[in-house]
Simulated assay, not measured.
Amino acid sequence: MFDTKLAPAVAGPPQDAAETPHRSPIRLPGTGFFAGKVALVTGSESGIGRETARALCQQGAAVVLNGRQADRLEQTRQALADAGYVVASCVADVTDYAACEALVATAIQTFGRLDVLITNASISQRAYFANMQPEVFRQVLDSNVYGTVYPLKAALPYLLQVRGSVTFISSISALNGMPSGSAYCAGKAAVANLAHTLRLELSDTGLHVGVVHIGFTQNDPDKRVLSASGEPVPIAHRPPRWQKTQAQVASRIVEHIRRRRQRTVLSALGQLIVLVHTYLPRLGDWIVLRTIRRLRHFYE
């Protein structure tokens, strides 16, 4: 069983991977829909990313884990390896293109192929636009946009070879905006539109390009977002009854990939937002404005 842990300073992908044959793929053990497949999940050291990696492992995939905190990433890798799953890991900041090349190289050098990419890593915020420092806005936006673009650019030649799958993790807040989340909403909306554009550009390649808009989800106790000044602060209040578990969200993400869907919107609230935003946008804005006045703790 492989539980390889490669350093990130490895060679990037070849200049033209489409003309460079891979070495023979490792015979991967396991059964399930993704048996014999290799998946890379960014931001999988914790939270939804970790549980998505676990769900893919349970369906037979070999998974490359990723994060920026080496200790936490190793704990996750070890836990999945101890459970009998085939995993590797790579510490990499997905807003750094060279690091993303090394991340993809970990998959290729360890397992010989890459079939599935899930761009999950991102930073969120809890701050109104007028109060945000410009560098904080950029940090949040970069994590969501370049944290999606760079891993895909590095992985694209390999995914095209196998007519694979890429799924961008967006949010229901990208569908209609959310006060105190300007940079996050902008980034997640950009990711959704990027998926649509790539679907058109790559329509004849067989590559699946999808986007999942996740809703309110239970977080790890130490989950933090950025304040207006860039300090890590707890996420704003979310009523528990509105939240799905991380495992539930991960299950839906994996189902989305298995069915090669273009878009999946999670939760009844998300579906309602789509409906209202499409057909009754003024009503949607009225509801949000009322919640700002009556439920300030929901945003602040």
Rank of each mutant, 00 (worst) to 15 (best):
L289A: 10
A174M: 06
F216E: 14
G43R: 05
R282M: 11
G270L: 10
Y85V: 09
A70S: 14
D82K: 15
E45H: 11
F216R: 14
T278G: 10
A127M: 06
V41Y: 12
N120H: 02
Y85H: 15
Q218H: 15
V265N: 09
G284M: 05
T291L: 12
V249E: 03
R54M: 07
N176K: 15
R113Y: 14
S180D: 06
G32W: 04
I172Q: 10
D142H: 07
G43F: 10
A17P: 09
C185L: 09
I118M: 02
V64N: 00
V41N: 08
D222T: 08
N120W: 07
R290M: 13
L266A: 10
A268S: 13
E231I: 10
A107P: 09
G230W: 08
T148H: 04
H22W: 06
F34I: 02
I26Q: 13
S182D: 09
L159A: 02
A88M: 11
T148K: 06
S171A: 02
R293S: 13
L141M: 08
R293L: 14
T167Q: 08
V63E: 07
R54K: 07
G215C: 06
R77M: 02
T264Q: 08
S170W: 03
I172C: 08
E51A: 01
R224I: 01
D93V: 01
P134L: 08
D3A: 15
L160W: 01
